[in-house]
Design a protein around this nucleic acid. Sequence first.
DNA 1: CTTATCTATGTCATTATTGACATATAAATA
DNA 2: TATTTATATGTCAATAATGACATAGATAAG
Lengths: 179, 179
Amino acid sequence: MNTLSYGLLSLLTKNSRSGYELMLHIQPFWSAKHSQIYPLLALLEQKGHVAYVHVPQSDKPDKKVYSITEQGKEALREWIAEPTDEPVTRDELSLKVYCIGLVDKEQARKMLAVREVYYRKKKERFGSLMDKLQQGSDKPLAQLEIGDDAFGMYVLVHKATMKVDTDLIWCEWMKEKLK
Amino acid sequence: MNTLSYGLLSLLTKNSRSGYELMLHIQPFWSAKHSQIYPLLALLEQKGHVAYVHVPQSDKPDKKVYSITEQGKEALREWIAEPTDEPVTRDELSLKVYCIGLVDKEQARKMLAVREVYYRKKKERFGSLMDKLQQGSDKPLAQLEIGDDAFGMYVLVHKATMKVDTDLIWCEWMKEKLK
DNA sequence: CTTATCTATGTCATTATTGACATATAAATA
DNA sequence: TATTTATATGTCAATAATGACATAGATAAG
């Protein structure tokens, strides 16, 4: 079973969710399109790691709401104990920046400006996520512990926020360099 | 042509390199195995974007040293002007951390400790890279400008250093949380 | 003395991932 | 009014990426 499948199981330990919702919630931490997720959910269902109920909706299309099974939880626990793969990053901008001398300052600035907008939006999204997390919590997020349900999400959003702040600092630094 | 192909061309704007060297130098910024790189180099050669000379070696296996052609440089310039893809990150640890409540504190600490070692090694590698960069430069790195040959590499290594420092700060923060 | 690592290039089957196609309704925006 | 966005699920061809296999000499570590 691939890493994304375990990722889907991980999300399902907190809430039952539709494939569409799973896609939206996993994307900040693992890039994946719906065309990859739906077939994997079908496989997980075949294997008995998840089960779903068909939920009819009047205003929106019907959906399948998936839940993790006891068997799925057991598979998850085994996966967590195994050695963890190293992170993989692929950023086209890095490759372009490497040979940035090929273009003039103006073009370079524009390239960086587009990316800065991307980072700002990302920061905003993580900010909202943190707010939503606080609203759903009965104690201040800083007091959450490993046993608390929201702990994992909290520490991940915290990390994401730290990283996007670093990206923005680099953008500012680059603007100075390209003045 | 895919992004990695352009990445290889980017590296070749600074130095002529063998496929093996290209693999080693691109990996910090774009994960790729030799089995992907060698076929792409053959394609780039077919298209006339790169050319190679066979270099016999006595102590080590022979190598093919690739150089970018004028045509390759033109392709690069066109690519840089196009919109840049958003970065893709896939980190299995994030998925595990999300459901970290499934394991006990001790196991969680060990998981994070392995990752911390990974980050420390990475930081060291980027530190060496920066040193090597300074040795090859006639002025202090902080004074490099867009026209300078080492500028792209310098700003990239700077970014990588900032990011890995952020990762390490998160690791320390997590150690506190898991005390 | 043996095993692992580094150098160096390559192929190929398998797996992972994307992008396009397909369908359908509601709401918001231009 | 027309187009885009969001909701919702799915298939399938094409592309990207990995891991295993193959070869081979040198050096380093255990």
